[in-house]
Simulated assay, not measured.
Amino acid sequence: MSPKYAFDGKFSVKSDVFSFGVLLLEIVSGKRNKGFCHPNHHHNLLGHAWLLWIEDKAMELVDECLLDSVEPQVQRCIHIGLLCVQKFPNDRPAMSSVVTMLGNESASLPRPKQPGFFMERSSMDLSATPAHEELHSVNAVTVTMLDGW
């Protein structure tokens, strides 16, 4: 969910771009943004990706199953993901530009700015979350079969 929608209830086409960026970073990392936990800090996945990016260690974000992939392509996906999750909607590219960026590996990309929701949770926030929190929902289904006689 984009910051503008979360805080102000305002939705735009740039909200979709933000969501796509989160999804792209989740795919590359193999981790979910919600519930992300790192032993060295309390940032969410977006914050972690940003920290690695500014330290020039973006490939440390990559899931093991993608390590055999072509590094420039994976690095480009991280770069595009960070462009999509920038804090201000006007800084985010249009979705048509994102598609072009993904399809044209030779085009240069602008430098991303800090993402929205780049924050560090306090240890109080983490202690309020149960360690056994389930990452899926349990759906109970009741089926009623009508039988006419």
Rank of each mutant, 00 (worst) to 15 (best):
V62N: 08
A58V: 03
H38C: 14
R92I: 04
P93F: 06
S96C: 13
F88S: 10
D63F: 09
P110Q: 02
H38R: 10
A107K: 12
I54K: 07
M101P: 05
L67Q: 14
N104A: 11
L46G: 00
L51Q: 08
A49N: 00
S97M: 12
M59P: 03
F36S: 03
E60P: 06
N44C: 02
C77F: 10
P39M: 15
Q75G: 07
G103T: 09
L46Q: 01
A94D: 15
I54D: 05
L45P: 01
P39E: 14
C65S: 15
F88V: 07
N104V: 11
V99C: 08
L67I: 14
S96D: 14
Q75D: 11
L102G: 07
V99H: 13
H79R: 01
S108N: 10
G103V: 07
I80A: 03
I80H: 03
C65Y: 14
S96Y: 14
C77T: 06
H43G: 02
M59T: 09
D91W: 06
N44E: 01
D68G: 10
R92A: 04
I54S: 05
H38N: 15
C37A: 14
H38W: 11
L46N: 01
L109A: 04
P72I: 03
H48A: 02
H43L: 09
D91G: 01
H43M: 11
G47R: 02
L83Q: 00
M95P: 13
L102T: 05
H48D: 02
S69N: 12
K57E: 09
P39S: 15
S97V: 08
L45N: 01
E55T: 08
C84R: 02
M95W: 10
A94T: 11
P89T: 08
L109G: 06
L51M: 09
I54A: 02
G103Q: 13
C84H: 04
G81N: 00
L45V: 05
N104D: 14
E105H: 10
H38V: 08
N104R: 13
R76W: 04
V74H: 05
L83N: 00
H48G: 00
K57W: 07
T100H: 15
P110V: 03
V85A: 00
A107G: 11
T100P: 11
V85M: 04
E55S: 12
A49P: 00
D63G: 10
P72N: 02
F88N: 09
L45G: 01
E105C: 07
E55I: 07
P39W: 15
V62P: 04
L61R: 01
L67W: 11
H41E: 08
A49T: 01
H42K: 13
L67T: 13
D56F: 12
A49Y: 01
L61Y: 03
S106I: 07
K87R: 09
C65N: 15
G103W: 08
N90T: 12
S108H: 10
S69I: 09
S96I: 13
R92W: 03
V74C: 06
N40M: 15
I78W: 00
H43I: 03
G81H: 02
G47V: 02
E55C: 08
